[in-house]
Design a protein around this nucleic acid. Structure first.
Lengths: 344, 344
DNA sequence: CGTTTCCATGGAAACGATTCCATACCTACA
DNA sequence: TGTAGGTATGGAATCGTTTCCATGGAAACG
């Protein structure tokens, strides 16, 4: 592996390394002649500048870090795609990390991102402001929180207003006659887990529905915990007649076990999920969801990060959420959960 | 932003930069005393080594590149997760790129990955061996192809044997009485697109089914082209009674438009998709699929890449595929596509 | 024609680590 | 006691760029 350096290019072009560097970085203080000669040498040698050396000298790495909990979650997959494409358009490459909803892995990734001197970090954070998150602040590394926040940290963020969507969902279910709504919550170590749970609690109270704390199951945003949640909730002496899942993966788990148990969604039990995924509309019955725009979230996050990198202090953005009613929650149920007709 | 370097650490610890470096890299030629002093200085200063400088000097970047077509495709999302986690376990971070099934974007990403001197690259390649792919070889950059290959290039790869699964699918449909099977193909610029199409053609011929070339629609592995394919195939004078989609996204598009057109899957028309996605089993009717193991593919790809980085020459691996019959294809259909009973 | 200005250029010093090489010290052995 | 061998250490070179600074020549101006 013979490494080709800028000196080789300079030698072949008959100029100095300094001039070659100037040509390559588009510095106007270059003659058309040397521009042409260097360009020719570059293609002749198939020269690729060493990004490490460049970054070392210029203290810019042209890379950003994106830390999410799990790309297999369609929400984060969409986010990763949008962020990566927007960053690419702005000349940055994206380092992807999956924290797997585990704080030590988040810290480990933040450490590597700091070591690699990424120009900025977009993170869906987990936990409180302890650990490596603290280092981001003391080092003044441009950071933007996406989807989630961390209490007490003054970092610009793009989040969703869960309140509106969840309130609409609860009101919708209440209007259909449900009084006992089961809630499959996200982990309380995340701001979305806490916020959505709080929104649910408030909405339930405002509507005068059952606040039986047994109706809440605390999951971890993974499919398996959705199944476990349904399992637990259906074993109650007075099981819920409707379910609200705090993210799409737990909804998937819930659907899987409901199928297995032979409970007909939208007939025997109503189901609404947070997060709109293309596929949810294809289910039969189609799934009612609380929708929010991932693409917008990703684009705004990159925009904000670029601003922070440029020394700006963008305002945090809160995006709306909204209930989309489909068949999975459209059947009115009598309060005692009697039999009902199926609609489609 | 005051940068803390190894010299600061060395000064605080009262040793030289060389010794500090030795301590940090675990070199045994260090006294317990300086080890302790350096460790203390590191935590005191919250020192993070500059990965660029380290990489520049040691010609290892401890990073790999992963280039897929689109993380929003659940297959690639799973792959990205597995690869990223396996790489992390081996001490590497992953640079993610989405080529969006476009050759120029693939080339652009390969260029940046080369510039960044990643230690290796895992790519689901697109197109022929022209463009930047060629540079990978001449520069002897450790590379592994995953899911797809490029004809004529001697690069280790992990792929799926599409033949077996597709043959099983065709035989299964033929046994159910289908003679006109529509095929929604992947792009012919990808090896999977070509291989699966060839396998389909062979299977159709062997079974003596209709080889009407109008029954093949060439899509691009995106959902929209699945919809377009169904639309085109159903407009034929003699439309197919069964459909085989070459990937999951096109299957999603197909399902969406079939719903909209009021065609009942598994009743009016049979449907089988390549790629097994957890959610496909949750559809009603559940979707028959040709399944292959993404996790295994990802793990093996990282294993192989590590071998190549170590100077080895691992053998390419071909993983099996297999038909999983579910309700979407289980109803026998009379050759003339008459009415039939619904099973579930 | 002489002086100023401008522009393209090359030499050399960074950037922050690793690593070769030489040295100083200490122990062990004859 | 003198020498060989081992160990911990520091100085300095190095990795491949960018960028500061000085220089030389051409152009422009009086």
């Amino acid at each position: 592996m013979v490494a080709i350096t800028i000196k080789d290019v300079a030698a072949l072009a008959g100029v100095s390394a300094a001039t070659a560097s100037r040509v390559l970085s588009g510095n106007p203080a270059t003659s058309p002649d040397s521009r042409a000669r260097v360009a020719a040498a570059v293609t002749e040698l198939d020269y690729r500048p060493n990004a490490q050396a460049r970054a070392l000298r210029s203290t810019r790495s042209d890379s950003i870090g994106l830390l999410v909990s799990d790309v297999r979650n369609p929400f984060f997959a969409d986010l990763a795609h949008t962020v990566e494409q927007a960053a690419l358009a702005a000349g940055y490459v994206t380092l992807l990390g999956n924290a797997n909803e585990r704080k030590e892995q988040q810290d480990r990734y933040l450490d590597t991102l700091i070591s690699r001197r990424v120009d900025g970090i977009i993170v869906a954070p987990l936990g409180d402001g302890s650990g490596s998150i603290r280092s981001l602040i003391t080092r003044e590394i441009p950071t933007v929180f996406v989807d989630r926040t961390v209490d007490g940290l003054d970092i610009p963020s793009v989040t969703t207003d869960s309140e509106a969507g969840i309130r609409q969902a609860v009101e919708h279910l209440a209007a259909a006659g449900h009084t006992r709504i089961g809630y499959i919550s996200g982990p309380q170590a995340t701001s979305t887990g806490r916020d959505r749970f709080a929104a649910f609690t408030r909405a339930i109270a405002d509507k005068g529905l059952s606040q039986d704390h047994e109706l809440v199951y605390f999951g971890d945003y993974q499919a398996a915990s959705g199944s476990a949640g349904v399992h637990a909730l259906l074993q109650l002496r007075r099981p819920p007649t409707a379910l609200l899942a705090a993210d799409s993966l737990m909804a998937v788990g819930a659907i899987a076990i409901l199928h297995k148990l032979g409970r007909r969604i939208g007939v025997d039990i109503a189901l609404i999920a947070f997060d709109d995924i293309e596929w949810f509309a294809l289910l039969n019955p189609a799934l009612s969801v609380i929708s929010h725009s991932v693409e917008e979230m990703g684009r705004i996050a990159v925009d904000m990060l670029l601003q922070v990198i440029d020394g700006g202090q963008p305002e945090s953005v809160v995006l709306p959420s909204e209930l989309i009613v489909r068949a999975s929650s459209s059947t009115p149920t009598s309060p005692v959960s009697g039999p009902s007709l199926r609609t489609n």
